Each structure stands twice: as C-alpha cells, then as structure tokens.
Simulated assay, not measured.
Amino acid sequence: MDDSGQLVSSWKQYPADDPNTGWVGWSNFPNPPGVIQDITTVKLPDDRPQLIVATDEGEFTKIKVDAHPDAAWTEWNGF
C-alpha cells in the first residue's frame, strides 16, 4: 500500500523460479470499499494467495485468484 492508501502490486515474470527473471513494475491494484485499516495475506491450500482487508466501514473483505496462475483476481467480496 502506498502513502495515499492505494493498494499497489508487482509480480515476478515467468519463469518465477529463475533467479534472473525480472519483476513487473508497480501498478495500482483495485481497492476494496472504504478506507483500508489493516491488510494481511494468506496462502490457500492450493498455493493461491488471498488478501484479507479490514476497512473503516467495519467490513472484512477478501480477494483471491482463480486456480490458473495467469488468471485475473476475483472481485472484492464481503465475509
């Protein structure tokens, strides 16, 4: 998250296990509703990342990728 509260993202280019592979530049990542107060990540059993966010609206929201590694992130969903 940057100083203005915007989520940003970068990822390692393919093949990710090659130490010489570069990283993609930072880009904005869609924010959930409200102002972010806390954020954490977890690794799902199938190795997909999941973001869990608390906002000032009192909602905990999450976003996770589809099973395919190149798939887009899902929309934000409330718990």
Rank of each mutant, 00 (worst) to 15 (best):
D17M: 08
S4Q: 15
I52V: 15
N28V: 13
P32D: 05
D3C: 08
Y14G: 04
W73G: 04
N20Q: 14
W76C: 06
T74H: 11
G25E: 11
Y14I: 11
D56N: 15
K12M: 04
V8R: 14
A72W: 01
D3T: 13
D70Y: 09
T55R: 02
Q37M: 14
Q37D: 11
A16M: 08
I36F: 04
D47A: 12
N77E: 14
E75I: 08
T61R: 10
Q13Y: 09
I39M: 14
D38L: 06
D56F: 04
I39D: 01
G25F: 05
K12I: 06
W76F: 06
N31G: 03
G34V: 07
F79P: 04
D56L: 01
Q6L: 08
Q13E: 14
T41Y: 09
S9K: 11
P15T: 05
I39Q: 01
L7R: 03
D38W: 10
H68G: 00
Q50D: 07
N31I: 03
F60V: 15
Y14L: 13
S27Q: 12
S27L: 06
V35Y: 05
F29S: 00
Y14H: 12
V35Q: 14
V53N: 01
G5Q: 06
S10C: 12
D66C: 00
N20V: 05
P69Y: 11
D46N: 15
P45E: 13
W76D: 00
G34H: 04
W11V: 03
P32Q: 06
N28L: 13
D18Q: 07
F29M: 08
K64H: 14
W76K: 07
V53Q: 00
F60K: 12
G58L: 07
I52K: 05
L51G: 03
